[in-house]
Nucleic acid binder design. Structure first.
Lengths: 100, 100
DNA sequence: GATTACCGAGGTTCAAACGCCTCAGGTGCG
DNA sequence: CGCACCTGAGGCGTTTGAACCTCGGTAATC
């Protein structure tokens, strides 16, 4: 079945596939436009890999899209292997309490 | 000197550093919050590496930021090794002309 | 039936991200 | 002065993204 790498990767791939299909292009088309391999495009769309910044930007450029809209709203609970859930807000609140 | 990996990576790192400093946090702080190593945070801020989707999301979550704002506006000419510059718009235009 | 296009899936190989270490430089403070 | 803290920079081992290949399956078309 090939389970996805992470929920974040799955969501990004879903969004990529959506914009690609809206343009009426095949995976091979965007692969050539983005100068990358077809199989990698497929894996990214299925969320089976954890794409790098450059590949995200390359794919966005190939589809005349903004890479930002593909990654907005992604949160840490969508990526695996996270144990503690403190954020900057918690840390700053802690620092303020510490110094009175 | 350690030149940056790409203009895109440099820009993302710059934006990350900006939000981190605005929060008054150190690299070690966000490294612990994002559960990654300090040196990697530094390399990403300097644009010396090509971060993956999961690390971008992890850092954004640590700083209570949206990963989308860090990657908006990035274009393919900010990443190296790109030869042809056709996009989906060019390809679709070509297809329409081909079929009359 | 055969052919073609598109996509999913698995394997191998290579380069690079990441973790982990060290050391140097800068700042501030007792 | 020493002694912290923060950051940049380099090296090295491990992990993994991406390139590259193959094969299977589906749908459409002839």
């Amino acid at each position: 079945m090939a389970e996805p790498h992470s929920e974040a990767a799955r969501l990004v791939g879903e969004r990529m596939k959506e914009t690609r299909q809206r343009l009426g292009l095949s995976q091979e088309d965007v692969a050539e436009l983005a100068e990358m391999h077809v199989t990698n495009v497929g894996k990214i769309e299925r969320g089976q890999t954890n794409p790098s910044l450059s590949t995200i930007v390359a794919l966005a450029g190939a589809m005349n899209a903004d890479p930002g809209v593909w990654v907005t709203g992604l949160t840490t609970d969508m990526i695996p292997g996270r144990t503690h859930k403190f954020t900057a807000a918690d840390l700053i609140r802690e620092q303020k309490r510490r110094q009175g």
